[in-house]
Design a protein around this nucleic acid. Sequence first.
DNA 1: GAACTCTATCAACACTGTGTCGAGCTCGTC
DNA 2: GACGAGCTCGACACAGTGTTGATAGAGTTC
Lengths: 225, 225
Amino acid sequence: MRMAAGPEAKPAPAAAPRGRGRRATRASGDDRERAILETAERLLEERPLAEISVDDLAKGAGISRPTFYFYFPSKDAVVLTIIDRLVADAAEGREEILTTLAENGPRAGLRKSLENLYAAFRSRPGVVRAGSDLRPTNGEARSLWAAVMEGWVADVTAVIEFERARGAAPAGPPAREMAIALVQMNERAQYATLLGEAPAIDRDHVLDVLIEIWLRAIYGTPEPG
Amino acid sequence: MRMAAGPEAKPAPAAAPRGRGRRATRASGDDRERAILETAERLLEERPLAEISVDDLAKGAGISRPTFYFYFPSKDAVVLTIIDRLVADAAEGREEILTTLAENGPRAGLRKSLENLYAAFRSRPGVVRAGSDLRPTNGEARSLWAAVMEGWVADVTAVIEFERARGAAPAGPPAREMAIALVQMNERAQYATLLGEAPAIDRDHVLDVLIEIWLRAIYGTPEPG
DNA sequence: GAACTCTATCAACACTGTGTCGAGCTCGTC
DNA sequence: GACGAGCTCGACACAGTGTTGATAGAGTTC
């Protein structure tokens, strides 16, 4: 299986490489590129990635299939471009989580951070699903998501360590491993809810439930009897 | 996209319908069917499902591609058969979780239940990955897994409600929604660890970390400062 | 022991989708 | 007015799926 996308190792003279799209240019065909991306976003909200062909994208953008390949090296590359942007959007409004927590207190601060984080995702479930669908077959999708997860894990690890250091949170498992579990829980639970999966937490409760578990996991010690 | 497998609505006279495999028979060709399943299991530990073709399965079982279709309606059907069995294996040794908890106490009981639960999965990571890879494109895989999750969620919901009723656990979010989040966390974290994903909890710590979070989530109340 | 049936087998086909090649069009500019 | 760069697509080669139809053998049944 060929690894999709990535600018060719061809000449590509001047002009900065612009993401996963066309081989460095600035001419008019930018419209086409945008049309392809918009078609993909639209179709992804209608049906899963596996049911969208390169031809669908080409037709949707008003070009032929071979012409599609002038703009993108594969269907995957289109989706990866869209995901890139989504992830960037999600990261954008994000403030330093430690600051948010300090300013608002644990519960409200956590809620603020997570609400902000998921805002971008909630509006494009189809894109989220596509990204998830891509991971099994596409190494680039895997490493992109891995990097995103790693970022969140690092943040949360810092929070846990900070709270433990100032005596607000009790000792427990290694902060990083707790952080991984919590971030993964959020990923999974939010995804299930967003895509309307089988057992899933109700849309209006997800954050409440997840936050409560985070707080208990980080600040609480069980005294089971 | 055709929905894979399922016994045909054809005549199929006597003989109980035997899962997703051949159209009801008992003749010699059982060997072939087994050979296909074994080939699939073997190849899945070598490479992902997407890189295994029907031809690979046929060749591996010493038959031609059309003959494969005599035994299974599709590649997906083969994988679903394997998953069915894996899930059955996993459910097999399982005892009533409430009993286990009552007998061993929360921490040890939970550990015992989860250890037992994951024993079957740990030995066949390739099959687990295949099941996961199948979900995006195969509705049957989705509902099979949904049913499995639903079973676990029901068990855990019962545990939480029981512990709350007897005063061992404090009130909190609806038991079922907590259960969903916790079960989903386990699914995701165990999967990441089993498949050696990017940020993942260390193999030797997963259960410890997950159990600690479960205990704190179920029995603990945070008093954040 | 001829006719009949039912399992099992595969060569050849039809189809869908991907990605490539090469020829050709349309500009701006030298 | 011709050269090159950006852009376009018809036609191809390929890989994979699922189907059809013909056939071989094994096991009744009369």
